[in-house]
């Protein structure tokens, strides 16, 4: 059964219909690729699913929450969702380590008031930072990292959330080959740990390598979906990418 589902989802920006009656389902414990030309509504879909944009029509079902018509950002962790951003969003003025520690903060504000890190939390932070090779950089400010390192830190922050569903918006864009390997390793590892990954990506080789399922969007609608080998060979999909 799908863990995340949209029904006739529609999102408009003034004149533009960015998502147009989209109905899709994401299977639990799989890696789903979302592809489509620029402006096809992929980022908007993730923004809507992570509660960062309201939507006009349709509904969303996630984990056990049925028929959501409004998704509140503060409920996103409760739904077991975490995400990364196409345009990286870190806590720029905080250190690499604190960007992770802040995620590991106890949800109870009052007990966190005067508390400093415990050894246990530090170990958790160390694990995710080592996974992206940033442990050595832990005391640098996020703003001083290179583009690729910032991208990796954002992925590490998502890992620290220990969610069920990871929505990753172009996590490979602009990365050096070394870093691409690191990130694809992490994504495979998430699947091995029975997590669900939704991956927006333009590199079809990566889609073929990683994804169980691929969804093709074009102009805010579902163009095609299925196993990557078949879908990526479809004429209408190739045309959508190359332009008609």
């Amino acid at each position: 059964m799908s863990i995340l589902e949209t029904k006739k989802l529609t999102k408009r920006f003034d004149g533009v219909v960015a998502i147009n009656g989209l109905s899709i389902g994401i299977e639990a414990e799989t890696i789903t690729g979302i592809v489509g030309p620029n402006g096809s509504g992929k980022t908007t879909l993730i923004n809507v699913l992570s509660g960062m944009l309201p939507f006009e029509n349709g509904s969303v079902r996630v984990n056990n929450a049925e028929n959501l018509r409004v998704i509140r950002p503060r409920n996103i962790p409760l739904y077991g969702i975490t995400r990364t951003f196409q345009n990286i969003r870190l806590f720029e003025q905080m250190t690499v380590l604190d960007n992770i520690m802040v995620v590991l903060t106890k949800r109870n504000v009052f007990s966190a008031l005067f508390e400093r890190h415990t050894a246990y939390r530090l170990k958790q932070a160390e694990d995710v930072l080592r996974a992206v090779n940033l442990w050595e950089k832990r005391n640098d400010l996020a703003i001083n990292l290179s583009y690729g390192q910032r991208k990796l830190l954002e992925i590490a922050r998502a890992l620290a959330m220990q969610s069920d569903i990871f929505l990753l918006d172009e996590p490979f864009a602009g990365l050096f080959p070394e870093m691409v390997k690191t990130v694809s390793g992490i994504i495979k590892d998430l699947k091995d740990h029975r997590k669900t990954v939704v991956l927006i990506e333009h590199n079809m080789n990566l889609i073929r390598e990683l994804c169980d399922h691929v969804i093709v969007m074009d102009g805010g609608v579902l163009l095609s979906q299925g196993v990557p080998e078949r879908v990526l060979a479809e004429k209408k999909v190739i045309e959508a990418y190359l332009g008609k």
């Binding site: 806590f91 003025q93 802040v102 903060t105 008031l113 400093r116």
Partner: peptide
């Protein structure tokens, strides 16, 4: 403090 880090996070990016 952990609370302080959360305050800085909110100051940096509320969303």
């Amino acid at each position: 403090t952990r609370f302080g880090k959360a305050v800085r996070a909110v100051s940096d990016d509320n969303e």
